[in-house]
Design a binder for these strands. Structure first.
Lengths: 227, 227
DNA sequence: AGACGCTTGTGCACTATTTCACATGACACG
DNA sequence: CGTGTCATGTGAAATAGTGCACAAGCGTCT
């Protein structure tokens, strides 16, 4: 007797695969809007910029089967992937820190489109609290708990300066947030049951810097640019 | 010129390692400012949120040796890593697209701190061109070539809407940009010699969504929150 | 001078991920 | 209804990345 309870224990999907699913989803939505009914793994691979075999293996983890000789049904696959990526319902998020970045994120369309509407804004600066940004009033940090309850949010975004990131994170966790996306350039720690992802903008540039530096170093002839 | 054949072909550093170097660098700078002279791999691992053995192996790729029984010399290591990550000189960047996100990036302190000062802003919208943002005048897309020459930029940031991302990328490439950081929620392609990294904000949330959804699914009892 | 404690550097095993290669099955067409 | 074409699904090999465990080296203290 393996498992009695639940429709499936559904073995976890590899992290690398999960990270690609949103890309597939985006490509699929695009195709769906273009009226296309099916896509092959090759097309989808192009859309996402990965290898076709990889696409097929990824989709096999979802138990999202295609039709041999034809491909995958676009709309069905959209449903399937959406379901895996946090259910079909919108997942409201709360942003802590409405500096430059926080403000930009507050009105970032992609969040809504991706099923993560911004439900609340919070800032520690009394100067900022009360202002209206992207149609929402910024509330004090102490309101976090209430805000989480009101909005039913389970996802928080940290967009504070680096030195305030851990504190902001702690507050979010205390308020009952279950997943945190940290944009502050600082490593933060969270208790086990909370999920965390770091997005470090400057770091991305530095990574690019390595490759560029390396190339320049290795190959002095680099004045040629494809026409 | 320096490199005849180079002092070393210097075997490439694994991508996973390169991605961690900026984290180490940040931690090291922090410690340096705190007046600390040396760090152990364990401390550095804490600072970056990774395994200590991993730190040591990473640093070994840089040929950045530490002292047994003591640790790594902070300032020396900073120099070493900075050098690997695109040289010691600032690397000016140009931002294409000054919508919400572009504006936020224009004044993002982390870029300057990371050695990537914003040297120019460009937008396709005539309405926006000419405006002053973060102390810089937004210039038309057609000025890209000139701007690259003037500023000596080799790095470009795409912060346009998705539908304009490929076009923006093409323009950057044509202007002689060598590395591109794409924030638009779209897969873009670049010719071989150009380096590209994608940062997709909504995607990050969706990845978090998977884990959360999965957990909620697997464990219906989740009303308990640590007090 | 010698012994001790601390920390590096790295071989090795293990895990994760990618990619190939191909058998298998589905559809369309005559 | 048989045949050809196409694209999936997947075993297995190749590749990448992680983390353990320990020998070796450095500095300090007596």
């Amino acid at each position: 007797m393996t498992a009695v309870a639940g429709p499936e224990p559904s073995e976890p999907i590899p992290g690398a695969t999960v990270a690609r699913l949103p890309l597939y989803l985006r490509g699929l939505v695009d195709r769906s809007e273009a009226g296309v009914g099916t896509v092959s793994s090759v097309e989808l691979a192009d859309l996402a910029g990965v290898n076709a075999a990889n696409v097929r293996k990824d989709l096999s983890y979802l138990h999202a089967h295609g039709t041999r000789g034809v491909g995958y049904e676009v709309d069905h696959l959209i449903t399937e992937i959406s379901l895996v990526l946090g259910g079909d319902e919108p997942n409201p998020v709360i942003i802590v820190g409405v500096g430059n970045l926080g403000r930009a994120l507050s009105s970032y369309d992609g969040f809504v489109a991706g099923g993560f509407p911004v439900a609340g804004l919070v800032d520690a600066d009394p100067e900022v609290v009360g202002r209206r940004i992207a149609g929402k009033v910024v509330r004090p940090v102490d309101d976090l708990g209430a805000l989480v309850t009101e909005t039913g949010s389970t996802v928080g975004i940290v967009a504070t300066p680096a030195h305030a990131a851990q504190e902001a994170t702690n507050r979010l966790v205390a308020a009952g947030i279950r997943s945190i996306l940290n944009f502050a350039p600082a490593v933060v720690v969270v208790p086990a049951p909370v999920d965390l992802r770091q997005v470090d903008l400057a770091t991305e540039l530095q990574i690019l810097g390595y490759h560029q530096h390396r190339r320049t170093d290795a190959d002095p002839v680099m004045s040629r640019v494809a026409g």
